[in-house]
Amino acid sequence: MALLAHMQMASGDRLIAFELIPRFGLELVSCHMPRCRDPMETAYPWYVLMELASSNQAEELDPVLERALASAHEKGMVQDAVVAASEEQAEGLWRLRHSLSEAQKYAGGSIKHDLSLPQSRIPQFIQQVTEQLAHRVPGIRPCIFGHLGDGNLHANFTQPEGADKAAFLDCWADISRMVHDLTVEMGGSISAEHGIGRMKVGDLERYKDPAALAAMRRIKTALDPNNILNPGRILAMPGH
């Protein structure tokens, strides 16, 4: 998070993306996804994919990025960096990030979560949730990635190597309860980008303020008295 703050200070509103990628995820993508390779010669536990852009098409962004990275390196925030020298290279780096979810299927079962957290709590969340789930399922493999710039995390957890997939997925309710409890405890939300849908109806009941739920149901009833618009999604409607 110190690097994010540094880049925001050094580049201003030019920083438009700041994506966290774990080593485990990068290994899966590099091994299993087409046209994906590890861009670094040395392995690191965490990576960040960042992008700068400017509304001024004449502005040279390379010097801005290079100065910011050099300063971050001097402060010990960055150990190594790869800078795309062409649109094709930039697309290759983004392909690594966009392939993370799909690549996880090659490692077996995964239990996935779409969360948001205050930026200041993200490092603590990652540490605590990793420790808690390692105690619950020894050998579980975290694949936590996402948009640090706006606090959105995909907190995904892959089965231990060699474990039975079905047995691991049977732990879904327990693991999600632990992840969501910690998320709410740290002031976050159990749903960031992908909504509540059907899967999180019970979670919304558990974590949402009862007064807010009652207000949501009144609005739903006023607009959809017969509950024919997406029934069973977002809200549990008594009597339907």
Rank of each mutant, 00 (worst) to 15 (best):
L223I: 03
L26N: 00
A43V: 14
M1Q: 14
G92K: 08
T183E: 07
I175E: 07
T42H: 09
L26A: 07
S101H: 14
A155R: 01
P142V: 07
N152C: 10
S120V: 13
L229I: 14
Q124H: 11
S189G: 11
L169R: 03
E88D: 04
L28M: 11
Q119W: 04
G239R: 04
A236F: 08
H240D: 13
G76N: 12
E27Y: 04
D150F: 12
P238E: 13
E161N: 10
V184R: 11
S120I: 12
L204I: 11
V29I: 14
T221V: 08
S99D: 06
K112V: 02
R14P: 05
P238W: 06
P231V: 13
L213T: 12
H32N: 09
V29Y: 07
A43W: 10
V78R: 09
L117G: 04
M1C: 12
V64Y: 03
A90W: 04
V48F: 02
L133S: 01
G149R: 05
R37A: 13
M199V: 11
R97T: 10
M216L: 11
S99C: 12
K75A: 11
A214K: 08
G195L: 02
I219L: 14
I111A: 03
L223K: 01
D203V: 15
H135I: 13
M216C: 03
T221C: 07
V78G: 12
V48M: 09
L20Q: 06
T221W: 02
H147L: 07
W46T: 11
L96Q: 01
Q57I: 04
A236P: 00
M186W: 06
L65V: 10
P231H: 14
M1F: 12
L204Q: 05
P225M: 04
L117E: 05
V201Y: 12
G139Y: 10
S189V: 07
V48N: 01
Q104V: 02
M40A: 12
A211N: 06
D181P: 08
E205L: 15
C143P: 00
H147G: 06
P231K: 15
P142H: 08
Q79P: 01
P238H: 05
D13H: 01
Q132I: 07
G149S: 13
A167P: 09
Y207M: 08
M50I: 09
G108S: 15
L69Q: 09
E193G: 10
E88T: 03
Q79Y: 04
